[in-house]
Amino acid sequence: MNTTPEIMIAFNLDRALKLLSGEKSAPLAGGTDLVPGIHQQAKRFAAIERLVDITRIPELKQVNVKNSGTTIGAGVTFSEILTHPRLGSEYPLLTKAAATIGSVQIRNRATIAGNFVNNAPCADSVPPLLVYDAIVRICSLKKSREIPLQEFLLKPYKTQLQTGELVTEIFLPPPPQNFGGDFYKLGRRRGVAISRITLALLLQTEKKKISGLRIAAGAVTPIGRRFYDIEHQYVGTEISAAGLKFLAVNVGKAILEETGWRWSSPYKLPVTQQIVYQILCKLT
């Protein structure tokens, strides 16, 4: 068993960044991934010697919904997202995903940034954040920077986050107008379920044609991702049952190409195509 890391509490952002500037420090928010991971002796947490509790930093707990876009503090919990008066109407796919995460107790602790900073493939909020074109704001003692979420996520359990950096905020551009959308999650059970498939779709139609399309998936690809090629390919096409089936098949093929044939593919691949098709039918 590893020696237990020391835990420091930061009450403001500067202090947190100072404490995090060392090689072997990591931020601790909800801890719903980190703490079990440390108990499991996960390699990705093995080097941590200091945990910096960032749950009491006011700057990280803000939600600001404006016409120019929305910022969600990194330390905002999923319960807070669910009870926010405006997020649900502005970004319904995000709140629908938030409602499926873990259980009430987990949602009371787990934070939005915590869901993606470790880049687990099954992070439920990632597909909605991707279709809303989320941008990640990152700070360190020296500088701050902004990166689109899709670029921030590198590969399973790896992101662009550097030593000394902390995700402070997520910026969501104003939601695209006149888009319908849906979030879908398949777990093995209804509560406290790790996702097997997650999908987020935004669709805009005009005169029986697809005029806007955004698709993202999680748990079926090594990390959550958008399908930009398919989106471009289908914007401007006529809506037909056959066309939507081919769109779904193309999503399946893209997943297969990216993920390869895995033990779970015989189930996940066909079911994902079915769900994509059914959601598209619902939205058209």
Binding site: A248, V249, G252, P270, Q278
Partner: peptide, 17 residues
Amino acid sequence: LSHTKTGILHPDQFRER
């Protein structure tokens, strides 16, 4: 779907909502 080899659906294997 018990015998599917590729995992890619045929158009007539889709199920309506």
